[in-house]
Amino acid sequence: MTQRVQGVVALGKNEPVRVETVLVPDAGPGEAVVRIQACGVCHTDLHYKQGGIGDDFPFLLGHEAAGVVEQVGPDVTDVAPGDFVILNWRAVCGHCRACLRGRPWYCFDTHNARQRMTLADGRELSPALGIGAFAEKTLVAAGQCTKVDASVAPAVAGLLGCGVMAGIGAAINTGGVERGDTVAVIGCGGVGGAAIVGARLAGAAKIIAVDIDARTLETARSMGATHTVDSRATDMVDAVRELTGGFGADVVIDAVGRPETYRQAFYARDLAGTVVLVGVPTPEMRLELPLLDVFGRGGALKSSWYGDCLPSRDFPMLVDLHQQGRIDLDAFVTETIGLGDVEDAFARMHDGDVLRSVVVL
């Protein structure tokens, strides 16, 4: 039976988001209905509202979520009603060429729920990243549900569903940070802060945080950065080279995703070093680099898809590390809010006042 719930919807480009009645159908084959307990306010949700990801309005926003499975389709066996899960936006198919080659974190045929949630007037909703979790309940593909230890707080568990996983994975999975490496992170908000945490977990000897906000740089130090660079006051490439004996960093992570920050990352790395792009660009952005420099500097230029994570492997592991006190997920939660506070949370995020606002239901 279709359920009526409250959810945060972007009805049109740059319009203020509104809490609307959302109709959630029963779970069909391969699907699950999840009662949301918490969902982080991610910059990607703001991109949706601004039309930076697509124009398939109206959007049901929210995707960094944790909750309890309420209902599953008749053929679902991996999760069951009552399971505490983190939602992910790359449900692995198991059959594409990446999966068959043993690289499911690159799955080329990830999927979402087949049915669509709607507004009360019948308009179909486009769920953000196939999730739509600024809502009391949502419908997802069962493969988007990763079961984890139910003792972890939903407000921190949900952040693993996107930003924290993207940052940690950019350092460990994509960047391949190893013991003794030097790492620079450009943009130290939620994703960049998580990249710092990932670099520290991997045993990096020197972690250089680069940002334009003194508050953010102070937070970066608390998360494990050994050095900070205010890129408003100094040339970050020169600063990173000075801090690395003139060579540049082994791994540079661009958590901003703009042409100018990517160029900085490119030139701040050591010869044969690695650049990781994890910040999300917008469609109109273009990059120009001298091809000779690309050839002559060697190394690797990588894009990090969701931290190249495998949710079934990585989410439980990171929850365990949090419970052991080896990573502090609570540090990412600046405030908890209600569904009606999302528009204000976007403003605070844009102004750099928060790492994460988290909607708690």
Rank of each mutant, 00 (worst) to 15 (best):
D293I: 06
F346H: 06
Q324W: 03
T282R: 12
P311Y: 11
L355V: 14
L292E: 13
G299A: 12
G279A: 02
T282M: 11
R348Q: 10
G299N: 11
L271Q: 13
A347N: 12
V280C: 00
G298V: 07
V333L: 08
I337G: 01
S357Q: 00
A331F: 12
M317N: 12
S303G: 15
A268F: 05
L355Y: 11
E260G: 02
F266C: 04
L355M: 14
E288N: 11
F332I: 06
D344K: 14
D270G: 09
L329W: 08
G279W: 04
I337T: 07
R269D: 05
R313D: 10
M317K: 12
E284D: 14
V276A: 05
D293N: 13
D293T: 10
C309W: 09
S312I: 08
D353C: 06
D351L: 13
L301H: 10
I337D: 02
V275Y: 04
T261S: 11
G325N: 03
M285Y: 09
L321A: 04
Y262N: 08
V359E: 07
V360K: 11
A331W: 08
G279M: 05
G352D: 05
L310F: 11
K302D: 10
C309T: 13
L339N: 07
S312L: 13
G340H: 02
P311H: 10
G325Y: 02
L271H: 15
F295R: 09
L301P: 01
G325K: 00
D320E: 14
A331M: 09
G296F: 07
I327Y: 05
D351N: 15
Y267Q: 09
S312Y: 00
A345W: 05
L277E: 05
D330Q: 14
G340F: 03
I337Y: 03
R297Q: 14
P259W: 08
R263M: 05
L287D: 05
M285C: 04
C309H: 11
L271S: 13
I327S: 02
G338P: 00
V294T: 14
G273R: 03
A300R: 14
A265Q: 08
E288M: 11
A268P: 02
E343S: 03
L291E: 01
G338M: 05
E260I: 09
G279Q: 07
G298A: 09
M349Q: 14
D320N: 13
D308W: 11
W305M: 10
G296M: 10
D320S: 14
V354M: 06
L329N: 12
V358G: 00
F295H: 12
A265C: 06
R326M: 08
L310S: 05
D270W: 05
S357N: 10
H322V: 00
Y267V: 00
A345H: 00
D293E: 15
V294N: 09
A345T: 03
R263V: 09
R286T: 15
Q324C: 01
E343T: 00
R269S: 05
G296Y: 07
L310K: 06
P311T: 10
F332H: 07
